[in-house]
């Protein structure tokens, strides 16, 4: 079989150091956000100033890589200026694309910054050909980041039916809800992922030790898990918590697992997918280096029609466990 073009590898960076690490580890694209509420990973100490972005773009372009800027929260009513400014600054910095979710911001960007390439964020949760064609026709969106709720079969069918490229989440945190349409964290903490850019934010997390050694993890006062002494207590992401229904305790929504589609890369190529996205702008530089390098090797192997090297990423997953998520229909 002929050698095919490898999938484009779109990698996260929360800091300039992580950006350089991603490029050096083989990222085709690094995606970043500004240091404010305009992006969906608005965590303390993370993200880029306009100057850092311009430097990051210059570094990436020198090394043959590209930069996408995520401006993928929903502008606050009455003060959309921060979001409009973010788009203008991304264009000024020479970014290769912006990743947007809000209909009004897409309309603004298409009108005021027509030359700036637009991608549709996963936060828009566009899960069918009609919605995607709408974004393409209205705003000339060139690529869509697909929701993590689709099966492999659905992704293949969808990709054949739409006039834009598709990008699929390959590794990292797994949203089990339709992205951008989930107010669970907002309900519990008062901080909205859609508006403020952080789900289950760290400032609301508490780890307490009870008599007898049991560790309790809480988010904004709600208990999300209890684990016996000695076992690791994971980060209390709301939808991965353990709750009870009619007295029976269970992970009601999802076990604490991470997404890893390494084993399905050949299928994603066959499905016509253009790019793979690695989650984790909030993660360390070591994470970025290891995960990007592993995926570089995997997508290149698949493009050369070779066997995908065995997984080495277990240490970077929640509880060391992974799932292919909704890609496999059994998940539903």
């Amino acid at each position: 079989m002929a050698i095919t073009t490898p999938l484009e590898l779109v990698c996260p960076a929360g800091t300039p150091a992580a950006l350089r690490a991603a490029v050096e580890a083989g990222a085709d694209v690094v995606y970043v956000g500004f240091r404010d509420e305009t992006n969906a990973r608005n965590f303390p100490g993370l993200n880029f100033s306009p100057t850092e972005l311009a430097e990051g773009v210059a570094f990436a372009h020198r090394h043959g890589a590209r930069i996408y800027v995520a401006i993928n929260t929903y502008p606050t009513a009455g003060r959309p200026e921060a979001w409009h400014t973010a788009v203008a600054r991304a264009e000024d910095a020479g970014a290769d694309a912006v990743i947007l979710a809000d209909l009004g911001l897409l309309a603004h960007t298409a009108h005021r910054h027509p030359a700036l390439r637009r991608h549709l964020s996963v936060q828009a949760s566009a899960s069918n050909p009609l919605s995607i064609r709408f974004y393409a026709e209205q705003f000339d969106v060139r690529r869509i980041v697909l929701p993590r709720v689709l099966t492999l079969e659905e992704i293949g069918r969808l990709t054949r039916q739409i006039p834009v490229e598709t990008e699929v989440f390959a590794f990292g945190g797994l949203c089990v809800m339709a992205e951008g349409r989930c107010a669970l964290s907002s309900y519990v903490t008062g901080q909205s992922p859609n508006l403020n850019g952080a789900c289950s934010p760290a400032e609301f997390v508490r780890y307490d030790q009870e008599d007898g050694g049991t560790q309790v993890t809480r988010l904004a006062g709600f208990t999300l898990d209890r684990v016996p002494d000695g076992l690791p207590a994971g980060y209390p992401t709301l939808c991965k918590g353990r709750f009870q229904i009619a007295g029976r305790a269970a992970h009601v929504f999802e076990d604490p697992v991470s997404l890893d589609v390494t084993g399905m890369i050949p299928d994603l190529v066959a499905a016509g997918v253009k790019a793979l996205k690695i989650e984790g702008r909030q993660r360390s530089r070591a994470y970025v280096t290891s995960v990007v390098a592993a995926f570089r090797a995997a997508v290149d192997a698949v493009a050369r029609n070779q066997i995908v090297p065995p997984g080495t990423l277990a240490t970077f997953t929640e509880g060391g466990r992974t799932t292919a998520g909704a890609l496999s229909r059994r998940w539903k």
Binding site: Y74, T76, A101, D102, G104, A107, H108, A124, G180
Partner: peptide
């Protein structure tokens, strides 16, 4: 309510 309309820009678009 399942279409995200959070601001006047999106309201105007709708």
């Amino acid at each position: 309510p399942f279409i995200n309309i959070y601001n006047e820009g999106t309201l105007a678009f709708a």
